[in-house]
């Protein structure tokens, strides 16, 4: 198929950006979206133009490194990561607009690459269970109710890609954060730090410049790992719990 691609190009954090239009011919439906961009890049290099910078690593939908806004949809029109999106979802003659994730807390690096280290800092603030190596009790000493274990697992599936922020009208990271609060808060091991955790994480989230949540659900719709919206409920509940405990 032949495609028209409108792609955001920006040389660096401070440089002005612009949309550039490229024509790409003979795209096969078996290509992944990123392989399509690889092909475009190879042709750009051959022509002497600098290739388009975009992030990816595992290319199997698990590392969370990739992420593009594709014609207004985070990770494209189907529920998956950009690297697992295949060109058979598009049609001959389509015009596709490709933009980076846009959020104040995800500063621009180059072209389609942004800096998501704010997510790491949210985890630093409290997204962990303090268990020094060597201090762990025997694994079977604490059974975990299966329902809770399953819910923790479902929330732990988050890959930290940032699509929730990209899709949210408020550029809020509540889904990402709710996923972590739920994962750790459902487990018995996560109880001692439960309320301190949620306060610290939310405070860091706000400090990073993410927006506040208005429960629109745009995040959960965009999430490639189908993290459900109710993790935000859990986060809210735990924050309220923290208030009640004088935090």
């Amino acid at each position: 198929m032949n495609l028209t691609l409108n792609i955001w190009r920006q040389d660096g954090p401070e440089a002005p950006g612009r949309m550039v239009t490229y024509q790409l011919a003979d795209v096969s439906g078996d290509m992944s979206f990123l392989e399509m961009l690889d092909v475009l890049n190879e042709s750009l290099i051959t022509k002497g133009e600098e290739p388009i910078a975009f992030d990816s690593d595992c290319r199997e939908g698990i590392c969370g490194m990739c992420g593009l806004m594709i014609s207004g949809n985070a990770h494209g029109p189907v529920t998956t990561t950009t690297c697992q999106l295949h060109m058979r979802e598009f049609h001959d003659g389509d015009s596709i607009t490709i933009e980076p994730w846009r959020a104040d807390a995800f500063p621009m690096i180059k072209d389609l690459v942004v800096d998501r280290s704010s997510f790491d800092r949210i985890i630093q603030a409290g997204g962990f269970i303090s268990a020094n190596t060597g201090s762990a009790p025997e694994a079977h000493s604490v059974p975990v109710e299966k329902r809770k274990a399953d819910r923790a697992f479902e929330a732990a599936a988050c890959i930290g890609c940032g699509a929730c922020v990209a899709a949210c009208p408020n550029a809020s990271a509540m889904l990402f954060m709710g996923a972590k609060v739920t994962h750790l808060g459902e487990l018995p091991q996560g109880q001692p730090e439960r309320y301190a955790r949620v306060v610290k994480m939310v405070a860091q989230h706000d400090h990073e410049g993410f927006g506040g949540c208005t429960n629109t659900g745009a995040c959960a719709d965009a999430c490639p790992k189908e993290i459900p919206l109710d993790v935000i409920n859990t986060l809210n509940r735990d924050l309220r719990g923290a208030l009640g405990r004088g935090r």
Binding site: K146, H183, L187
Partner: peptide
């Protein structure tokens, strides 16, 4: 064996049986 203990303590959500054990 220590690895499993350590990971469980950190909150790694391993698959569990209905009885709550790994």
């Amino acid at each position: 064996a220590n690895i499993i203990d350590q990971c469980v303590a950190q909150g790694v959500p391993f698959a569990r049986e209905y009885g709550g054990l790994l």
